[in-house]
């Protein structure tokens, strides 16, 4: 079924030939590949319906090919597990996939190619991905990644200072959340009347975190022990 879909997509007219798409993606990958590791600092803003949290200072460590860790060293933050997907290598590093271009769209004011990627191996956690690629700068500006286990993640990235390395200054990650409700009796709350008007608690919910990077240290080595 998926192959059929891929096939149908490929057959659609007025699209870039598949080979060209992969070439573009390879160029993007090459750019991102300059970074073997980095340590960064950033500000994490959480916007999840059931979490009220202050802006947190976090540290981010990355090491090729796919190790990434975000941590609030001094305080407490709930880091979404899907935040590993802020690493573009997750998609760009796929070896066996099909890709098609399905048009152009503006992301943050720049025209981007919309590239749909279909991994062909069943072992990949990613089942489908859409990348919005800025051809001029060879940067992924937005991505929507569907995983087999944890639902869909959407990323919007803004590049400035570290655009040359393919490292964003700001990332917005949107992800699916589960309901949060404690069993009755586990906590006897004080009723301050604040929860009365929140009726929109049904249906699938989205959470969002935003990381604004303040400082990158690139290719200075990161020990593996960090990621354990």
């Amino acid at each position: 079924m998926r192959k059929l879909l891929v096939f149908a997509a490929i057959l659609l007219p007025a699209l870039l030939p598949a080979q060209d798409v992969k070439e573009l993606l390879q160029k993007v990958k090459d750019k991102y590949d300059q970074v073997k590791d980095y340590t960064a600092e950033g500000k994490l803003k959480t916007n999840v319906l059931f979490i009220k949290a202050p802006v947190a200072t976090v540290k981010i460590w990355y090491k090729k090919p796919d190790k990434i860790k975000i941590k609030n060293e001094k305080g407490v933050s709930f880091i979404p597990k899907g935040s590993v997907n802020i690493n573009m290598n997750n998609v760009l590093g796929l070896s066996n996939y099909e890709a098609i271009v399905s048009g152009t769209e503006k992301v943050g004011g720049t025209d981007c190619k919309v590239i749909k990627i279909f991994p062909l191996s069943d072992e990949d956690n990613i089942s489908r991905a859409t990348l919005y690629v800025d051809e001029q700068q060879l940067l992924v500006k937005r991505s929507v990644i569907s995983t087999r286990e944890n639902g869909t993640y959407e990323l919007v990235m803004q590049y400035k200072q570290y655009a040359a390395y393919g490292l964003p200054d700001k990332v917005e990650l949107t992800f699916n959340t589960r309901d949060y409700k404690l069993p009755k009796g586990i906590s006897i709350d004080y009723d301050n009347g604040a929860d009365k008007d929140k009726k929109e608690r049904t249906g699938p919910k989205k959470g969002k975190v935003e990381i604004v990077y303040t400082k990158y240290t690139i290719n200075k080595g990161v020990p593996d022990s960090i990621f354990n």
Partner: peptide, 12 residues
């Protein structure tokens, strides 16, 4: 930092 759990949300 302090985390407080309520029935339907948590406060940091």
């Amino acid at each position: 930092d302090l985390v407080v759990f309520r029935e339907e949300n948590m406060h940091l």
